[in-house]
């Protein structure tokens, strides 16, 4: 009696066994189904919603770019751009020391934990939530938005910069130290030249992100175009809303292209 081995080919899989693979897949499906069941969106609400959507679109067109609207968009956008610039510069200045604190190879252990703590804290909350707290602290207006964005910048910038410091070439730093340089000189000549291109690239990238974020911070009173947009929605001036949205879209795209060009040049 001869045994025939089957030679059907199976695609290789990251899961060690088929049982495990299907267990994971069905787990995900069950999870999604649970969500569907819990939220139970009625179909008629969807249909009504799409009807309302059609009405909304028709009342949005044509977008309102009249003289008054243009003036309000202009003030809002200028505020937004100014906020993003000030917040990025402030955030970058604040994050430089935090980055050195959070670099494993540079900072002593306790300092490293403090640095990481600052980073984790400022990364966890959505900018809007922080903005609510800062609006309470320093009042409604762009200042609250700037503080919020600067704090959020620390988490992003210090984290990536500290990773860059951890990846630096230790030999250059040691060479400068060996010439008898003090710690500040070795920092200036041994480390900073190595991280400078990344520093510039990251700053511009963060400006781009801050610009996007500063368009929404006004929703909770943090200044900029967001408050104009929010009030236009609340008053159902939807044609004005569309004009604001188009402006935001264009400005964000310009910002993205600018940041891409600068990063290509330096990295």
């Amino acid at each position: 009696m001869s045994t025939k081995e089957s030679h059907t080919w199976n695609r290789p899989s990251v899961f060690q066994s088929r049982v495990r693979k299907w267990a994971v897949y069905s787990g995900i499906v069950l999870f999604v189904l649970w969500s569907v069941w819990e939220l139970r969106v009625p179909i008629d609400r969807l249909i009504v919603g799409f009807g309302a959507g059609a009405d909304m679109v028709s009342s949005m067109f044509p977008p309102d770019f009249g003289p008054t609207a243009r003036g309000r968009i202009w003030t809002g956008m200028i505020d937004t751009i100014a906020m993003s610039i000030v917040a990025t510069i402030a955030g970058v200045i604040l994050s430089a020391p935090v980055a050195f604190m959070a670099a494993k190879n540079y900072a002593p252990r306790p300092v490293y934990y403090i640095g990481m703590g600052i980073i984790v804290f400022s990364r966890t909350f959505h900018p809007l939530i922080l903005a609510i707290v800062f609006v309470k602290a320093v009042g409604v207006g762009p200042l609250a938005g700037v503080i919020t964005l600067a704090v959020v910048t620390i988490g992003f910038f210090a984290k990536l910069l500290s990773e860059e410091i951890e990846d630096m070439d230790r030999l250059q730093y040691d060479a400068i130290r060996a010439t008898g340089a003090n710690p500040f000189q070795s920092l200036a000549y041994g480390i900073i030249p190595q991280i400078k291109p990344r520093f510039i690239g990251l700053s511009v990238y963060r400006w781009d992100i801050n610009f996007r974020a500063s368009t929404i911070i006004g929703i909770v009173g943090g200044g900029g175009i967001g408050s104009t947009l929010m009030s236009s929605f609340q008053r159902f001036q939807l044609d004005f809303s569309l004009a604001i949205l188009i402006t935001i879209l264009i400005c964000v795209m310009i910002g993205e292209v600018m940041s891409l060009k600068v990063r290509e040049k330096y990295q």
């Binding site: 969106v41 368009t215 935001i248 964000v252």
Partner: peptide, 20 residues
């Protein structure tokens, strides 16, 4: 290019307030 929260403003007009 448009934040989720701005999309939410638009969809709240469409579907009314809520998770949808």
């Amino acid at each position: 290019s448009i934040s989720a929260i701005i999309w939410a403003l638009i969809f709240v007009v469409m579907f009314g307030p809520g998770a949808l």
